[in-house]
Simulated assay, not measured.
Amino acid sequence: MPEPESGTAPLRVLFCIGVNQNFFDLPTGQGKAVWDGFMTMFGRLHGMPGVRVLGTIDDDQHMVGPSGSWPWTSYVLADVVDQPTVAAVCNLFRTVQVGEYGLWRYMKIEARAGRPLPDPEATR
């Protein structure tokens, strides 16, 4: 991942993803198109310059129903080069299509950005 222009460390970002009621209102069997759209978005996220995915958590086996806020359905932890790139990741939910709609019709994303905590071993 390229270093931020200021020479500072990249942002540590937690992308929080919720599945909304529109997904659960789909007729049985029609959710696969949403899953395919999610995987397209996820592939693009992994391929974005300035984004290094550190880990993911998917809670879909332990929760059923919409998640409009915490606890979220899934999380992506990433180092991201700058705020415009964080916004570009969120924008994927607008640009990835699921049929005639954007992915945002079925899912939402929010980003929490900060910086990594220092490694206690490195400060000794």
Rank of each mutant, 00 (worst) to 15 (best):
L11N: 09
M63H: 13
P116A: 13
T40A: 15
S6E: 07
R105G: 01
A78Q: 07
Y101Q: 14
W70K: 02
G55L: 07
G55C: 08
R105E: 10
V51P: 00
Q30K: 14
S6W: 01
A122R: 13
G55P: 03
V89S: 01
L11K: 10
F42E: 12
Q30W: 06
N91P: 08
Y106E: 07
E3A: 15
R112C: 14
A88T: 11
P84W: 12
V81M: 04
W72R: 00
H46F: 02
F93Y: 11
P49K: 10
A78M: 12
P10N: 04
T73M: 05
C16V: 02
F24A: 04
R112K: 15
V81Y: 01
R94Y: 03
Q21K: 07
M41N: 02
L92S: 02
V19F: 09
G102Q: 15
E100F: 07
E3I: 07
Q21A: 10
H62Y: 12
G114C: 09
R12Y: 12
V89M: 02
A113S: 15
R115C: 06
L103Q: 02
D59C: 10
P71V: 08
G50E: 06
F24Q: 04
P118L: 11
V13P: 08
P71A: 09
V89C: 05
G29A: 14
P4A: 13
D59Q: 11
I57C: 15
Q97V: 05
L14N: 10
H46A: 07
R112S: 11
L11R: 15
R115N: 14
L11Y: 14
R12H: 11
E110K: 06
W72N: 00
T73H: 06
G68D: 09
G55M: 04
E5A: 05
A88R: 14
Q21L: 02
W72K: 00
L14D: 07
D36E: 13
Y75I: 06
G65D: 12
E3M: 08
E3H: 12
V51I: 06
Q83L: 10
V53C: 01
R124M: 14
D119N: 14
H46I: 04
T8H: 12
F38Q: 11
D59L: 08
P2G: 05
L77Q: 01
G50R: 02
R52M: 09
G18Q: 01
D36F: 09
D82L: 00
G43H: 04
W35G: 04
E121Y: 08
W35N: 06
P66R: 07
W72V: 00
T56I: 10
F24D: 03
L103E: 02
V80W: 01
F42L: 13
D58P: 00
D59N: 10
L11W: 12
F42A: 09
F24N: 02
G114N: 05
G37R: 04
P118W: 06
T73F: 00
E3T: 12
L54A: 13
G29I: 15
I17Y: 04
H46T: 07
R115K: 10
K108Y: 00
W104G: 06
F23G: 03
R124F: 10
R12M: 11
V96G: 01
Y75L: 14
Q30D: 13
G65W: 11
C90T: 13
L11D: 14
L117A: 12
Y106H: 13
G99F: 01
D59R: 09
G65R: 05
D36H: 04
P116L: 12
D59G: 03
R105S: 03
P27E: 06
